[in-house]
């Protein structure tokens, strides 16, 4: 998936709570999309730009985040 192709598109993130270790890196990188729940794990609260959501997902040390294109449903990460 080239950047040009996803530019301006929105992406949806899904956090696997069996894998999330609460590093908070996704919240640091895409604060508009992720927030910390009360138990210290992350949750995705809305869609965000493909670039920032994929950056956040890549930063996760435990590969807990799956990213899909909000229009096509195509998996953008991993």
């Amino acid at each position: 998936m080239s950047e040009a192709k996803t530019q301006g598109r929105l992406a949806l993130a899904c956090v696997d709570l069996d894998k999330c270790v609460g590093s908070t890196l996704c919240v640091q990188i895409a604060a508009d999309v992720f927030r910390l729940a009360g138990n210290g794990q992350s949750e995705a609260v809305c869609a965000g730009s493909c670039e920032s959501v994929v950056n956040a997902a890549e930063a996760c040390p435990n590969m807990a985040i799956t990213v899909t294109d909000s229009q096509t449903g195509e998996t953008l990460f991993p």
Partner: peptide, 19 residues
């Protein structure tokens, strides 16, 4: 599986080099 061990810790100090 699943294996939610804490060998690399959890939270903000989870091991940088874990991967």
């Amino acid at each position: 599986s699943p294996n939610p061990h804490v060998a690399f810790a959890h939270g903000i100090h989870v091991c940088l080099g874990a991967p």
